[in-house]
């Protein structure tokens, strides 16, 4: 159990005790994913929307492998326009998942970098349609603030490009966003490659992290999921404990006075 009492994270009307959100893509099998989700302790998992494969239409639903207590967060991955994102959100809601949506409006297929302008526009439209919108965004502090003001239920800056495993390239961006987005959670989404990356994000004050590839492509996804769980707790506890300030030069840990000196020394 954590030493310092922590509060749950609130995303719109939804409450989560785990600060680790997990994606369901890229697992070698549904059972590997099932084991990893259980080991992670997550209460929120992302899914994508795609056409049914008509030649394999009897394959079991992915949702059969997600614990029933876990909330489903459909994404708009693959959308490059506001209209496509709105359609994906409407389809997810029609499929019976509810009003929670992870908005992604991508501008660049190589970097999967969010389009800042279209992302803001789509956020405004989805909020007006009654969705609870968790917004994947660039690590830009001003845009993050605009998204919060537009009614986003969570602001989710990337640490580095999706699936790249490069970690949190600019940790200062997380500090900057946390200083400005004060009413809704900040979730570091994308780029986390190892457990240390998750801890670093949480220690910087992120309210949660969203991890997919780092777990799915680990040699042992369930073990990595559990490592991520503890890394998130460690980072969060480190944040709550209050990190010491950084200094440019050394400051001795041992007393300066009463030092032992050889005879004839200074």
């Amino acid at each position: 159990m954590p030493i310092l009492e922590d509060s749950p994270i609130q995303v719109g009307p939804y409450t989560f005790h785990s600060r680790l959100f997990v994606g369901t893509g890229k697992y070698a099998s549904n059972t590997l994913m099932q084991d990893a989700l259980a080991a992670s302790g997550t209460e929120l998992v992302t899914v994508a929307l795609r056409r049914v494969n008509l030649s394999r239409s009897d394959e079991p639903s992915l949702l059969n492998f997600v614990p029933p207590s876990v909330k489903i967060l459909p994404n708009t991955a693959g959308c490059y326009t506001v209209e496509d994102a709105l359609l994906a959100a409407d389809l997810a809601r029609t499929a019976g998942i509810g009003d929670l949506i992870k908005l992604e409006v991508i501008a660049d297929s190589m970097l999967l970098w969010p389009d800042p302008i279209l992302t803001l526009q789509a956020t405004e439209r989805l909020v007006a349609k009654g969705f609870t919108v968790m917004v994947y965004t660039t690590p830009d502090p001003i845009l993050a603030k605009h998204l919060e003001d537009a009614g986003a239920a969570a602001v989710m800056p990337l640490g580095s490009p999706i699936g790249s495993g490069q970690g949190i390239i600019d940790i200062e961006a997380i500090y900057r966003i946390k200083e400005r987005v004060t009413r809704v959670p900040v979730v570091v989404d994308a780029g986390i490659g190892g457990a240390a990356d998750a801890a670093v994000a949480m220690e910087a004050g992120a309210d949660a992290v969203l991890v997919n590839t780092a777990i799915a492509l680990a040699k042992n996804p369930a073990a990595m999921a559990e490592a991520m769980k503890w890394a998130v707790i460690a980072g969060r506890q480190g944040y709550l404990a209050g990190r010491m300030p950084k200094r440019r030069v050394a400051e001795a840990s041992s007393p300066e006075s009463g030092r032992v000196e050889a005879y004839g020394g200074l």
Partner: peptide, 8 residues
């Protein structure tokens, strides 16, 4: 016809 699949 659209369904949910694995995604991040």
């Amino acid at each position: 016809i659209i369904r949910f699949v694995g995604g991040g």
